[in-house]
Design a protein around this nucleic acid. Structure first.
Lengths: 101, 101
DNA sequence: CATAATTACGTTCGTCGTAACCATA
DNA sequence: TATGGTTACGACGAACGTAATTATG
């Protein structure tokens, strides 16, 4: 499983509709369906109740939705903080250039 | 970037040695090197100082190491909690079977 | 010369999109 | 019959391993 899987699941869980979620993700319904299926197989847990005309979250799906959001948030923070740390270093350098000693 | 990239980076950052990290990940040095390079390109930030005979973390690398660990931890929790939630449901069902009403 | 990381290249696996399919309302 | 989700299948891209390359100590 992957961050891609998490993003796909979040989209479906929020839209409760594969078509809309696919449009939001800029992919087709077909690969989206497969991605969710694969995720459920990996977890060994059904995340969605697929009714012929509607989609609902299972209790496990509800839990996983919240946790998946935490993962993506942590990932974005990781990127942001690493870039900030690199810029911090540049800022120090620039400060030293402006006022050497 | 991906969870795979994070796992690779953590291994290199902890070993400070591509060869050992590759063995630990059960892949070869070559794809590992590419993976780290790609990650740095994605971030736009160098994470490692590569000296001909040694590897060190940049300040950004240090920060990213901690954050990457948080991401993987969150991901493992997501899996664990989703499975627990599914089992919770089964446990309830079993309880009802044992003691119906 | 030995060691450590990187690039070149061919193969394998994953992901996509198009199209066909099934099942309801 | 229209809609929504799922499989079938071929094409493209990503990741791997082997092997050759570069560069220090």
């Amino acid at each position: 499983m992957n961050l891609r899987h998490l993003r796909c699941f979040i989209a479906v869980a929020e839209e409760l509709h594969f078509g809309r979620a696919a449009r939001r993700l800029h992919i087709e319904q077909s690969p989206l369906s497969r991605t969710i299926r694969q995720m459920e197989a990996d977890l060994g847990v059904p995340l969605l109740n697929r009714l012929p005309r509607s989609v609902r979250l299972t209790p496990a799906g509800q839990v996983f939705l919240e946790e998946a959001r935490r993962v993506l948030l942590a990932f974005e923070q990781a990127q942001t903080k690493a870039r900030a740390a690199a810029n911090q270093r540049n800022t120090l350098r620039i400060a030293l250039l402006i006022r050497p000693q």
